[in-house]
Amino acid sequence: MLLQVEKLCKNFGGLKAVQNIDFSIDSGEIVAIIGPNGSGKTTFFNVISGILPVSSGGIFFRGQDVTSWKAHDMAKVGLTRTFQNIRLFPELSVRDNLIIGRYSKNSSGALDGIFHSKRLRLEEQSNEQVVNEILEFTGLASMRNVLATNLPYGAQRRLEIARALASEPSLLLLDEPAAGMNPKEVDQLLALIRALKQRGLTILLIEHQMRLVMGIAERMVVFDHGEKIAEGEPAVIRCDPKVIEAYIGTEVNECVGN
């Protein structure tokens, strides 16, 4: 198992945002977490990526107990994420955002910087190569020197994914990557995710609209009120009565019709 979560709980004061979640994802899988607004999906992401501390339960990455690890520790072992409300480095160019994405793959320190050491120069060379390759792959090459804050919305979302890719993650967490996108941008995004799948990347993504992930996710997990209410293949999930209840009539008309 790449990532395993056991009986995970997260409380904010009296509010139980995430309750008793058991979950696991294996290398090469694409799994989608769906659920209505406020069902604890993003909180679940924030906890497993180390941004929020766990209230109880355990998180294991490649069998190693990482329950109490902070976000920067998680990034170092290969868990990288994007955010629901885009968190780029706004005053940096597209290319420089990716350079920061390379951070966890490099190791040079202050002295390397001051003396411009061989280690730093080697890292710079390989960073440049990887960054160029990712810019091509994500279709951002033409915007290389544009400041992140000046990018169109869809490109900002793609840049966030590109930045995460720059760290060569073993598990990529995408938090509502299609939020706010127009249909054309959504299509581009889906193509990008499929291409990532072909590269063998493991992806866990959150999506609010079930329809969007039907085509790409191999497995779906449904959250409601902080609990996992269903898990399984998309086709099965779509007709699960509990899921239909959670979504009351919004996206499940096809099933009801059958």
Partner: peptide, 17 residues
């Protein structure tokens, strides 16, 4: 630079603020 602009994003890139 990363920490200055977005501490949480920096941390999730592996930077220890």
């Amino acid at each position: 630079a990363a920490i200055r602009q977005d501490e949480i994003a920096a941390a999730s890139m592996g930077i220890n603020p």
